[in-house]
Design a protein around this nucleic acid. Structure first.
Length: 419
RNA sequence: GUGGUUGUAGCUCAGCUGGAAGAGCGCCUGACUGUGGAUCAGGCGGUCGCGGGUUCGAACCCCGCCAGCCACCCCA
């Protein structure tokens, strides 16, 4: 027996309905916000992710699926979507389409991590990006879009956290202040913190073990320069006016290197420890880092399996169109031939039609028709064959009607309307 | 990557101190001569996660590995 790869999943039947529901919501919301879909390759040159995500991040250091292809090129299965979008933006000169460029994507991402509920090695993200606008209006729209998406799929109990991590120069000053603050504390802190003191001081803030140590730490918001502060104030103003509740979390430090100024997350109390469903922020430096002309940008990514988990946890009703509408049951060779003919007519009329292909008796065909949720069964036995009739059975109440074969399709369309 | 926990039929799970692999549900078939969700009967289906070891004998004990789950790390 060959099993699926660790951290991957097969999605079918009941589960696939959640995905189709979510994908439909993505299409609805992005259409209404006038975003354009982009599909990039799921693998890219390794260098792209090293440069954009950041050499020092966990994603690049230990979570990438990287291999050499037969030409000796280092290839990596994309661990996230933004880098590819930025690359495509530069490579195809989308900037000439007029700024800003609003894009969305959805699809599989790959990270070599230890799986647990809500965290997989192949997982799926829906993301949106605005490239070309430095305005807090763009930050606002991105957050609003994520917010409206959650409303669209009927997830309610979420909390939005925002922060600003400033521009590189604010951050440099803040880093100094943090080092000053932690200098005499770090020896008593956990091993990770001691390591991060040098490599990434900001990360000391969200250490769960040494939480109390950072309680009185300097707040990054007090180290923002005038422009960054204004940007953050404007974003908050738009959020407040739109009545989108937010909480400021000065410890919110996004993991990926390319973020600047706005960082935000949406978390849900209905999930376990993997409770973050949306992560996003501004990444004004990214496009330049991977070789384009400097271009401000902001975006988010939403974890689709976490949305599925939430829909289940919150018992959101998912519409289903899985049931076939009509099942064709025939009792013999000639009858079956006629059955296929009638099935073609029904399908041509756009009706989902199931044909039994098991050569079993009427009872068992009927049993199966009921099982798959057929609303109507069309019975073709020797009598119907001879008289060019069909017997139409309404499964819900068991009522039956003999109908001329030529009128069958119209008759069934009519009946389906009432069911 | 670290720690904990679980793994027996498609699903949910029994299986005593180590002594012939089971039930319910589902699936297929029949009772029903052309009619479903009911009943009854029969059948298919298991290398007991995998591999070693201990033992006369292992689903059960020991070791390793694999996979799921939980927490950490990190993140969506």
């Amino acid at each position: 027996m060959i099993n699926r790869i660790k951290g991957t999943q097969d999605i079918a039947f009941e589960d696939i309905e959640y995905w189709q529901y979510i994908e439909q919501a993505v299409r609805n919301i992005t259409f209404r916000y006038a975003y354009n879909e982009i599909r990039t390759p799921i693998f890219e040159a390794t260098e792209l992710f090293k440069r954009s995500v950041g050499e020092s991040t966990d994603v690049v250091q230990k979570e990438m699926y990287t291999f050499d292809d037969k030409g000796g090129r280092s290839i990596t299965l994309r661990p996230e979507g933004t880098a590819s979008v930025a690359r495509a933006f530069i490579e195809n000169s989308f900037i000439n389409l007029g700024s800003p460029v609003k894009l969305f994507y959805m699809g599989p991402m790959f990270r070599y991590e230890k799986p647990q509920a809500g965290r997989l090695r192949q997982f799926h993200q829906f993301g949106a990006e605005i490239l070309g606008s430095a305005s807090p209006m763009a930050d606002f729209e991105i957050i609003e879009l994520a917010y409206e998406f959650l409303k669209e799929v009927k997830i309610n109990k979420t909390r939005l956290f925002i922060n600003s991590i400033g521009c590189p120069s604010c951050r440099a000053r803040y880093r100094e202040a943090l080092r000053e603050y932690f200098r005499d504390k770090v020896d008593g802190m956990c091993e990770d913190c001691r390591r991060r003191f040098d490599s990434n001081v900001l990360r000391l803030l969200d250490c769960k073990i040494d939480r109390e140590q950072s309680e009185n730490a300097p707040n990054i918001l007090e180290y923002l320069d005038e422009e960054c502060r204004k940007h953050f104030e404007d974003l908050k103003w738009y959020l407040e006016k739109a009545r989108i509740d937010y909480e400021i979390d000065p410890h919110l430090v996004r993991g990926l290197d390319y973020y600047s100024r706005t960082a935000f997350e949406i978390r849900s109390p209905s999930l376990g420890s993997q409770d973050q469903i949306v992560g996003g922020g501004r990444y004004d430096g990214l496009v330049e880092v991977i070789g384009g002309k400097s271009c401000p940008a902001v975006g988010f990514a939403i974890g689709m399996e976490r949305i599925v988990m939430l829909l289940k946890a919150e018992k959101v009703n998912i519409p289903t169109d899985r049931n076939s509408e009509v099942a064709i049951l025939a009792t013999g060779r000639e009858e079956s031939l006629r059955g296929f003919e009638y099935a073609r007519r029904l399908r041509k009329a756009g009706i989902s039609t199931y044909v039994d292909v098991m050569e079993r008796n009427m009872r068992n065909q009927m049993k199966h028709a009921a099982r798959i949720g057929a609303k109507i069964s069309v019975i073709i036995g020797d009598e119907e064959l001879e008289k060019d009739l069909v017997t139409v059975k309404i499964m819900m109440d068991g009522s039956q009607y003999q109908v001329d074969g030529d009128y069958m399709v119209d008759y069934i369309i009519d009946k389906l309307r009432d069911i």
